[in-house]
Design a protein around this nucleic acid. Structure first.
Lengths: 192, 192
DNA sequence: GGGCCAAGTCAACAGTTGTTTACCTCACAC
DNA sequence: GTGTGAGGTAAACAACTGTTGACTTGGCCC
C-alpha cells in the first residue's frame, strides 16, 4: 500500500517515522505511546520501526538525540542579553516548526539507562553553556553556586514548556513569545 | 495471606494503596505504572484497587485530589517574603515526608478528562494565590500580566521539581532547601 | 459458639503491546 | 524481458494489562 507519488525511499521513511515519534513521545510520553500510533501517524507499516530503529527503545533514543541536536543548534552562542528572548522563543515552540518544545521530550523517560544518559548529557551541556555566559568556569571557586543558578533558569524554561504542553493553564498556555520575553528577562537578570 | 499483626482494616488498606500509588504515579507516570506494581508495593491484593477506587483511573484521580489538598495545605496564607523558602522546601520534598514533590504528580497525565480538570483547577488556584500575594485581583486592569508572572514563578518551582526527580542533573539534583532559597528569592523578587 | 458480612484472595477473561517471521512488489541493471 | 535485492506488508506470537466474579477467611454480635 505504498502511497502513490511517494517513491520507495528508506531515508525519507526513517525521517517521517522520527518526526511522528518525536511528536507522540513529547505529547503523550513513552509508555503511553504505541508503536502502532507512530506508524499510523507516519502512514507506514509498524514493522518498519523495528527495521530502522531496532526497537521502540531505539526509536526513542534517536528522538532524544535529534532533540538534543536541535537544542544545541538553537543555543549556539547567544549573548547573555539575548538569552531571555531565545528561551521565550524556544518555549513557545516557534523555533522548531510545528513540533512542541524539545524540552518536553527531553524530560520523557523510558526507564532505559542509555536514554537517561543522552537526556542528562544534553541538559548538563545546556546548563553549562548558560552558566558560561555569566562567567562560569569549571574551576572557579564558586562554580557550583553559579551553575545552580543557571540550572534554575533552565528549570524555569522547562517548567513553562511543561505547563504549556501538559495543561491549559491560562494565561500562560496561550502567551506569546513577546508576552514571555519580559518575565524571562527579569528571571535571567536576577539569577545570572 | 493477610499480613500477620495487621488486622483487616479497609480504611488503612485504602490509604496504603493511595500512598503507594502516589509514589509510583509521580515517579514513573500513569501509563508506565501497573496496578500490580502498586498492589505489590502496598502488600495488598490487586483486586482491592478496583474495590476501593473502581478503576486505575479512579485511583489516579484520588491521588491527584490528595496531592492538591496537600499543596493547598502547604501554601496556606504565607506572606510574600516567605514564598521563596516555602517553594524551596516544597521542591526539595522535605514538606510531605518521604514522598516526592506533589508538583511532579500534578503534571502526570492519564489522558482522562476528569483527571485533567482536577489538575488544572489545582494549578490555577495555586497560581492565583501566588499572584494575590503580589496584589493581584481578578478585575484589576493589568491582571493578566501579573497572573502570568505568578505562573512563571510556579513554572520555576515545577521545573526544579521535575529536573530533580526525572534527572540527576547536578548540582540541582542534590541541592538542599538552603541552597535553593537564595535563587528562589531572587526569582520571586524579580517577578512579583 | 455459630452465623453473618465485610475484607481479602484467586484464577481467568479479553484486549493490547512490542516484536518476528515469511511473504510480496517495485525499480533498476543487464 | 527478467532476475535481484531493497523497501514495504501482513499475520501471528507470547507476554502483559486492567478488570471481573466466584470464592475463602477473619472478626464481631447475639
Amino acid at each position: 500500500m505504498t502511497v502513490k507519488g511517494r517513491p520507495r525511499d528508506a531515508a525519507k521513511t526513517r525521517q517521517t517515522l522520527l518526526a511522528a515519534a518525536r511528536r507522540r513521545f513529547a505529547e503523550d510520553g513513552y509508555a503511553a505511546t504505541t508503536v502502532r500510533d507512530i506508524a499510523d501517524d507516519a502512514g507506514v507499516n509498524v514493522a518498519l520501526i523495528n527495521r530502522y530503529f531496532s526497537s521502540k527503545e531505539g526509536l526513542f533514543e534517536a528522538c532524544l538525540r535529534a532533540a538534543g541536536d536541535d537544542l544545541r543548534r538553537t543555543g549556539g552562542d547567544v549573548p547573555l542579553e539575548r538569552v531571555a528572548e531565545v528561551i521565550a522563543q524556544q518555549v513557545t515552540g516557534l523555533a522548531g516548526g510545528a513540533l512542541p518544545s524539545e524540552l518536553v521530550l527531553l524530560l520523557r523517560s523510558s526507564g532505559d539507562e542509555k536514554a537517561d544518559q543522552i537526556r542528562i548529557a544534553t541538559l548538563r551541556s545546556s546548563s553549562e553553556r548558560l552558566a558560561a555566559l555569566a562567567g562560569w568556569r569549571p574551576d572557579h571557586p564558586e562554580a557550583d553556586e553559579l551553575l545552580l543558578r543557571a540550572q534554575v533558569v533552565l528549570a524555569t524554561a522547562v517548567g513553562i514548556s511543561v505547563l504549556r504542553s501538559m495543561t491549559r493553564l491560562e494565561p500562560l498556555a496561550s502567551s506569546s513569545e513577546q508576552d514571555l520575553t519580559g518575565p524571562m528577562r527579569d528571571v535571567v537578570r536576577s539569577l545570572l
